[in-house]
């Protein structure tokens, strides 16, 4: 029950929360403009001018979105509680759901990029692609050897094409 009311609250007011975060971020932009050094001082349009204009405009727009989202959230809550409209079904649990798969893909991509400097393009690409293939493929498609073969062939082809045909530099690792 507690879970349900929390998820309802998040659903109704997530846009308001986003607007609030943007309001804070745009305010920070205005605050940090004071750190910008000024070379041209005999004009009103200095290096601080444009970020300040963007920050102020952003704050105003975020404020409007916040008020609009709160009003919409309150209206939605009233209509749902009175039974005028039905509440949507609860989503799936985190570790079984899409959010987990997206976050795991993101984490793997982070590790891939972090490892490029140490382990180099070839090794990290083979590892990364294999892990992502396995994670995203449905059970019936998880044929390890087939996926590994596609992964290795693709990585070597990309390496040969860019390194030796297009003469581009690819990330080199300190170990390999």
């Amino acid at each position: 029950m507690k879970n349900r009311s929390f998820s309802d609250f998040v659903r109704r007011y997530k846009e308001a929360a986003f607007a609030l975060v943007m309001l804070v971020l745009f305010s920070l932009v205005i605050y940090f403009t004071k750190d910008i050094r000024l070379l041209v001082i005999n004009t009103t349009v200095t290096a601080r001018f444009w970020p300040t204009v963007c920050g102020i405009a952003g704050c105003i727009l975020s404020g409007i979105l916040f008020v609009q989202s709160v009003i919409e959230g309150v209206t939605l809550a009233r209509r749902e509680e009175s039974g005028e409209i039905e509440k949507p079904e609860l989503g799936e649990r985190f570790f079984e759901g899409d959010r987990f798969r997206s976050l795991a893909t993101l984490l793997l991509t982070f590790l891939y990029i972090a490892g490029l400097k140490t382990f180099g393009f070839l090794l990290m690409t083979v590892l990364y692609l294999f892990c992502v293939f396995i994670m995203l493929a449905e059970k019936e498609n998880r044929k390890v050897w087939k996926l590994l073969l596609i992964d290795v062939v693709f990585t070597i082809l990309v390496y040969l094409l860019f390194r030796y045909v297009f003469k581009m530099i690819l990330p080199l690792g300190t170990i390999w």
């Binding site: 041209v40 200095t46 727009l61 979105l65």
Partner: peptide
Amino acid sequence: LIACGIGLVLACVGSAPIDGY
């Protein structure tokens, strides 16, 4: 417009035009 504002602010990162700070 908020999205456009985010783009404008991110474009401010780095050297300022003209004075280069």
